[in-house]
Amino acid sequence: SEIVKHAEEALERGEFVRIEHNGRVIEIRNEEALEELRRWVEK
């Protein structure tokens, strides 16, 4: 997914991403959060 790709690229640069999706906000700061995002987006 485009969202996950964006988050992965930001993590590689040492940045973090805040994503709003279906009214929820998730902050991607590490691999664990990235995995959570993947599960969340796939639903």
Rank of each mutant, 00 (worst) to 15 (best):
R13W: 01
F16I: 15
E36S: 08
E20T: 10
N22M: 14
W40E: 06
I26E: 01
E20A: 07
I3C: 14
S1I: 12
V41F: 12
L11N: 02
V4M: 11
N30G: 08
W40A: 06
G14E: 05
E2G: 10
V4H: 02
I19Q: 01
E35N: 11
G23P: 00
E8Q: 14
K43G: 13
V41R: 01
S1Q: 12
L11M: 07
R39A: 10
E9M: 08
L11T: 03
E27Q: 06
F16P: 12
I3F: 07
R39N: 11
L37Y: 05
E35K: 09
R29P: 04
E9A: 13
E32N: 08
V17M: 09
H21R: 06
E42V: 06
N30L: 04
E27V: 12
R18I: 15
E36W: 13
I28M: 03
E15I: 08
R38D: 02
E32R: 10
E8T: 13
N22I: 05
R18M: 10
E2S: 12
G14W: 01
R38G: 02
K5H: 06
W40H: 07
H21G: 01
R24K: 12
E27H: 09
R38P: 02
A7D: 02
E36A: 12
A10Q: 06
A7W: 05
N30S: 11
R18Q: 13
E32A: 13
E35T: 07
K5S: 07
N30A: 04
A10G: 05
E42Y: 05
E42K: 08
E36R: 10
E31C: 15
V41T: 04
E31Y: 15
V4S: 03
N30C: 12
H6E: 10
F16M: 14
A33H: 11
L11E: 02
A10D: 02
K43E: 14
E20C: 15
V4K: 02
R39L: 08
E12D: 11
L34W: 02
V17R: 00
I19H: 02
G23I: 00
I28F: 03
E36G: 06
E2L: 13
N30V: 04
V4T: 05
E8V: 10
V25M: 08
E32T: 10
N22Y: 11
R39W: 07
E35I: 07
V25P: 01
E35L: 06
V25N: 04
S1T: 11
A7S: 03
I26C: 10
G23K: 02
E36F: 08
E31F: 14
L37K: 01
A33R: 05
E36D: 09
A33T: 12
A10F: 06
E35A: 11
R29T: 13
E15K: 04
R13M: 07
R18N: 10
A7G: 01
R39V: 06
E12A: 15
K5T: 06
G23R: 01
L37N: 00
H21C: 15
F16C: 15
N22D: 12
N22E: 12
E8C: 13
E42A: 09
E42S: 09
E9S: 09
E27K: 04
R13N: 11
E27L: 10
F16Q: 13
R13E: 06
L34Q: 00
W40Q: 06
E20P: 01
E15P: 00
E32K: 11
I3H: 06
L34R: 00
I28A: 01
I19R: 00
E9T: 08
W40P: 01
E20R: 06
W40I: 10
L34S: 00
G23D: 04
V17S: 04
V25A: 05
V25C: 15
A33E: 14
L37R: 00
I3M: 10
R13A: 07
R38E: 03
L11G: 02
H6L: 15
R13I: 06
L37D: 00
R13Q: 06
E12F: 11
R18K: 14
E20H: 08
E35V: 07
H21K: 05
E12Q: 14
A7C: 10
R39K: 12
E31L: 15
L11A: 03
L34Y: 01
E8M: 14
E12R: 15
E42T: 09
F16G: 09
V17N: 03
A10M: 10
E42L: 06
K5R: 13
E8Y: 09
E15T: 03
V41N: 02
E9R: 12
E2I: 11
S1D: 11
V41L: 12
V17E: 06
E8F: 09
L11H: 03
G23M: 02
R39Y: 07
I28G: 00
S1M: 13
V41K: 01
E2T: 11
W40T: 05
R29H: 11
E2K: 12
A33D: 15
E15C: 14
E12M: 15
H21P: 00
E2N: 13
E31D: 09
I19A: 04
K43W: 12
K5C: 06
A7R: 01
N30F: 05
S1P: 12
H6M: 15
R13Y: 03
L34P: 00
G14R: 02
V41E: 03
A7I: 09
L34E: 03
E8A: 14
R18V: 15
I26H: 07
V25Y: 10
L37P: 00
E36T: 09
K5I: 06
K43H: 13
V25W: 12
F16R: 12
A33S: 13
R24T: 09
L11F: 11
I26L: 09
R18C: 15
I28R: 00
E35W: 01
R13G: 05
K5G: 04
L34T: 00
A33C: 15
L37I: 03
I28E: 00
E15V: 03
F16W: 09
V4R: 03
I19K: 00
E32V: 09
H21L: 15
E35H: 07
V25F: 10
R38L: 06
K43A: 14
E32C: 12
R39C: 12
R24N: 07
E12N: 15
V41Y: 08
E8R: 15
N30H: 06
I3N: 04
E35Y: 02
R13H: 07
H6K: 14
K43S: 14
K5Q: 08
E42F: 04
V41C: 09
R24Y: 12
A10E: 02
N30R: 03
A7N: 02
A33N: 13
V4C: 04
E31K: 15
E2P: 08
K43Y: 14
H6W: 15
L11D: 03
K43R: 11
E27T: 09
V17Q: 06
N30M: 04
G23C: 09
V17L: 14
W40N: 04
E12G: 15
L34N: 00
G23Y: 01
H21T: 07
K5E: 04
K43V: 13
E12Y: 11
E8W: 10
A33G: 13
E36N: 09
R18Y: 11
S1H: 13
N30E: 04
I3E: 04
E27W: 10
S1V: 11
A10S: 08
S1Y: 14
L37V: 03
E42R: 04
L37C: 05
R18D: 07
E27Y: 10
V25K: 04
R13F: 04
I28K: 00
V17K: 01
R29A: 10
N22G: 10
N22P: 00
K43F: 13
K43I: 14
E12W: 10
H21W: 15
E31R: 15
E9N: 09
V4N: 01
L11S: 03
E9K: 12
R18L: 09
A10Y: 07
R38V: 05
R38Y: 03
L34A: 00
I19V: 13
R29N: 13
E42D: 10
E15N: 06
A7L: 05
R38N: 02
E9G: 07
A10L: 07
N22V: 05
E9D: 10
E27M: 09
I26N: 00
E20Q: 06
E27P: 03
E9Q: 12
E42C: 11
E8K: 15
K5F: 05
E15Q: 07
F16D: 08
E32G: 08
V25T: 09
R29I: 14
L37A: 01
R13S: 06
I19F: 09
V41H: 03
E9C: 11
R38Q: 05
R38W: 02
E31A: 14
I3V: 10
H6S: 10
L11Y: 09
F16Y: 09
E9F: 01
H21V: 15
A7P: 02
E42I: 04
G14V: 01
R39F: 07
A7T: 03
G14H: 05
R38A: 05
E20L: 11
I26Y: 09
L34F: 02
E8S: 12
S1E: 11
R24P: 00
K43T: 13
V25H: 06
R29D: 10
I19D: 01
W40V: 06
E20Y: 10
G14S: 01
E32L: 09
R18W: 13
R24W: 11
A33W: 05
A7F: 05
V4D: 02
G23T: 01
W40L: 12
G14C: 13
F16V: 15
E31T: 13
